[in-house]
């Protein structure tokens, strides 16, 4: 059965710069998200949005200081969290939502899925959740083919873990010892269905990986440093040619599956408990202040900086023009 990853982490082992980077990334993700929801409420952004609020630590911890531009990620259905952590410019992500030519798709528009930034290793995402699990063994195989040490990190929710493709993917990754890291963002609900209603597992989803001989664990996904450490070990293992790792990161979403979801299938007290006691940003800020690594004023100034970065990004994305309708006839073929 999957073991719970634990490690005695001392803040002093990290530089102030790195710790601040973790905080800043998480805060940026949340503020990006809050502002996007505002744009939806103002009627400027249509379509579905799957808010990543409450799970910022998982993406910031796994990506920051672990992955380089040339390492590949496939983001999940709350994937703005991972795109921002990987460094995709905010104006590009907003541009995709707004459908202006500032977006990565140059005006075709994208929701969470279909934005891409190949120069930063973000090779896009499928609208059919879980399909990225198959595609990721292809990127990982290419590292083997070309002899590079590039790793692939593939994110997917507990819901996407139900897709048959997970098993095809794990089989290949285990068989060919591919440099791929599976990060299952288990927020317990696939829209309205609890993980216990949809998955036949011994105890955890990570137990499935055991059957394929893939090292695996369960980790508190809301602890940014723990996420950082567990993924760091997996990246090192992949680079040593020892193959894949499966990490089940446990978290909870603060909002419904999509904006407008009544979210009434979750126990109110359970949700409140996650918000009060396990908020990844609040807890990390408190830890940083307790150990006097940063002051409240430091955090305030970081937040003010992010606010203006986001305002600028939105301004840039919104002021860019919509594409000429002929845009749809460009780029089908290379």
């Amino acid at each position: 059965m999957a073991k719970t990853y634990e490690k005695d982490i001392k803040l002093n082992d990290y530089s102030k710069e790195v710790l601040t980077d973790f905080y800043k990334t998480m805060a940026k993700i949340r503020k990006f998200d809050e502002n996007l929801i505002r744009l939806m409420q103002e009627g400027k952004v249509s379509g579905f949005y799957h808010s990543g609020i409450g799970s910022e630590g998982l993406s910031a911890g796994s990506i920051r200081q672990n992955l380089r531009d040339e390492d590949y990620i496939f983001y999940n259905h709350r994937g703005c969290n991972q795109k921002i952590a990987k460094g995709v410019p905010l104006s590009k992500i907003y541009g995709d939502f707004l459908g202006t030519i500032e977006g990565t798709t140059r005006g075709l528009g994208a929701g969470i899925v279909h934005s891409a930034d190949p120069a930063r290793g973000v090779l896009g995402q499928a609208g059919t959740i879980g399909s990225q699990l198959g595609i990721s063994v292809g990127t990982a195989y290419t590292s083997k083919l070309t002899g590079t040490d590039q790793v692939t990190v593939v994110y997917f929710g507990d819901g996407a873990a139900s897709r048959e493709m997970l098993h095809g993917s794990l089989n290949w990754a285990g068989l060919y010892k591919l440099p791929v890291i599976y990060i299952c963002e288990n927020n317990e609900y696939a829209i309205s269905c609890h993980v216990s209603e949809t998955h036949a597992v011994k105890e955890n989803i990570a137990d499935w990986a055991e059957g394929y001989g893939i090292p695996n664990c369960v980790v508190d996904g809301n602890d940014v440093l723990l996420m950082h450490e567990v993924v760091k070990e997996a990246v090192e293992r992949a680079k040593r040619g020892e193959g894949p790792t499966f990490i089940e990161a446990q978290t909870f979403r603060h909002r419904g599956h999509f904006e407008g979801d009544p979210y009434d299938y979750v126990d109110v007290e359970v949700l409140q408990g996650w918000k009060d006691k396990k908020d990844p940003i609040k807890n990390f800020a408190a830890k940083l202040m307790l150990e006097k690594i940063v002051s409240e004023e430091d955090l305030e100034s970081i937040n003010a900086e992010i606010d203006s970065e986001i305002a600028e990004a939105i301004e840039k994305a919104e002021s860019a023009p919509l594409p000429d309708p002929k845009r749809i006839y460009e780029g089908l073929f290379a």
């Binding site: 590949y72 190949p118 090779l123 896009g124 399909s131 699990l133 198959g134 595609i135 990721s136 063994v137 292809g138 990127t139 990982a140 195989y141 290419t142 083919l145 048959e164 493709m165 095809g168 993917s169 089989n171 290949w172």
Partner: peptide, 13 residues
């Protein structure tokens, strides 16, 4: 499905 998906993944690198 994995054969074709892997091909897609290889190609897009």
């Amino acid at each position: 499905p994995t054969i074709v998906a892997a091909a897609v993944g290889m190609a897009i690198t």
